[in-house]
């Protein structure tokens, strides 16, 4: 670790600053395990949704509710934000703090737009009588999407905090793993959204 510290200060940043220290390596490995746990959490919730989505109790059915153009827009926005977070990490690897921070800022901006669209969508549904207490379908729909949405919100706030740190300190071996892990997180919630788009929306249109 001491050698790596010296490298960091004497010869500038190493090529992959996020993996330069043992702390950084631990953080990244630990985060992969955390995402494994999150995967299990979402898998359970998908199972729940599949078990309960038929119980609309006379309320609106998925086919009647879902507006694919709106959801497709949300999907596009979120997928683009995944791309911008990759560009941010490329900025980190080029040791270009400004580039990194700019792309991460765009990432959370897109995340915020996604959240706005989702809130708008939920309000529309509520007007049509589809709420968390209306039926088991409603409960499972909002729990699954709400859990995902709160993950997006958490990610936005988290990366916002990181951007503030990045503006103060630039890229260091200390904060590089944080950015790297945050981008992993962002890809993860994107991946979950792809499954939501498929299982909830697309499969909801055919059944």
């Amino acid at each position: 670790m001491k050698v790596e510290d010296q490298q960091a200060t004497v010869a500038g940043l190493p090529a992959e600053p996020e993996k330069a220290t043992l702390e950084g390596k631990n953080k990244i490995l630990g985060f992969w395990f955390f995402m494994a746990a999150e995967t299990t959490l979402f898998a359970t919730m998908f199972g729940m949704y599949l078990a309960l989505r038929g119980s609309t109790m006379g309320g609106p059915t998925p086919q009647e509710l879902f507006q694919l153009p709106l959801v497709a827009t949300s999907t596009l926005v979120l997928l683009t934000s995944s791309l911008t977070s990759v560009l941010g990490i490329m900025g980190m690897h080029e040791n270009d703090a400004n580039k990194m921070l700019k792309w991460f800022a765009i990432t959370i901006l897109l995340g915020a737009i996604f959240l706005g669209l989702e809130v708008y969508e939920f309000i529309e549904y509520a007007h049509e009588g589809h709420t968390i207490t209306s039926s088991a379908f409603g409960s499972s729909f909002y729990l699954l999407l709400g859990t995902h949405g709160s993950h997006v919100l958490f990610g936005v706030l988290w990366i916002l905090g990181l951007i503030i740190q990045g503006r103060q300190q630039g890229i260091t071996v200390h904060n590089a793993p944080k950015f790297y892990v945050a981008s992993l997180y962002w890809h993860f919630i994107d991946l979950v959204w792809i499954f939501i788009f498929t299982v909830v929306y697309l499969m909801g249109m055919i059944h």
Binding site: L52, S55, I132, S135, A136, S139, L143
Partner: peptide, 11 residues
């Protein structure tokens, strides 16, 4: 909510 309440279609 109605995840487990039979009246709301739970399981």
């Amino acid at each position: 909510t109605h995840f487990f309440t039979l009246a709301g279609g739970g399981n």
